[in-house]
């Protein structure tokens, strides 16, 4: 699968490199030769071209692209035009980065498959981490179920899982425990080893600071995430 990255500013550049590191075939495009040269050694191919030029895009086989990510935010017009051309050319999935709420709405209106607004998304995550530092992640698995990664609440510390009555009283289930274990290395220095306990049994004791990976119905997960 080849992914076209259009726009090699900070975000596009980082995305192209990250995808390449994971073994993805990346075709990078920017009208700025300096940016194109900077990324050349990291990606499969790089083109210096204007992504609003339909003929130029066709000449590099954009119609056969499985996915394209438009990372242009400094020129909204160019971003919108590029996305429209990609959709018209039949690119299977078009993802675009938005630089503002208005930009995001316009991209959604013209049928971009997924709009990313990293500043907004990151701001929400940072706010969450400030207000609820005990929550590491909440993932929606389905309409009914969520996954929660959080530090063990106080009432669970130094108790066996079966004593916490998680299933009966809270309707959540522990899938795994991520635990930091202090150890002494061969050189005599103290360090920390990370342990992962998958599907812990009822006899497992919860330690202070344990990171629990839990699954449950949405409402139960939300209630449990508010417990300190």
């Amino acid at each position: 699968m080849a992914i076209f990255i259009i726009g090699l500013g900070r975000f596009g550049n980082a995305l192209a490199k990250a995808l390449s590191e994971k073994g993805v075939e990346v075709i990078a495009i920017d009208k700025d030769e300096t940016k194109a040269n900077e990324i050349e050694e990291f990606v499969t191919k790089v083109y210096v071209m204007d992504a609003t030029n339909e003929k130029a895009l066709s000449s590099i086989g954009i119609e056969d692209a499985d996915m394209a990510v438009v990372c242009i935010t400094n020129e909204i017009e160019a971003s919108i035009l590029a996305c429209m051309i990609l959709k018209e050319k039949g690119v299977k999935k078009v993802i675009a980065k938005a630089g503002s709420e208005l930009h995001k709405r316009i991209l959604q209106r013209i049928g971009v498959d997924r709009v990313i607004f990293p500043e907004q998304e990151m701001a929400h995550r940072v706010a969450e981490s400030i207000v609820s530092p005990h929550i590491f992640e909440i993932i929606t698995l389905s309409e009914e179920y969520k996954l929660l990664e959080r530090i063990a609440p106080k009432f669970m510390e130094n108790k066996k899982i079966k004593e916490t009555k998680l299933k009966t009283d809270y309707g959540v289930y522990i899938l795994a425990i991520k635990r930091n274990k202090p150890i002494v290395k061969e050189n005599g220095k103290t360090s920390i080893k990370e342990e992962l306990i998958i599907a812990p049994g009822g006899e497992e004791e919860i330690l202070k600071g344990d990171l629990l990976v839990l699954i449950g119905k949405k409402e139960n997960i939300e209630k449990f995430s508010n417990i300190w």
Binding site: I151, N180, K181, P182, T190, S191, I192, K208, G209, L211
Partner: peptide, 13 residues
């Protein structure tokens, strides 16, 4: 101090 740091890191503080 170092071991106190290790302790806080262990308990995710």
């Amino acid at each position: 101090l170092f071991h106190l740091g290790i302790l806080y890191e262990t308990i995710n503080e």
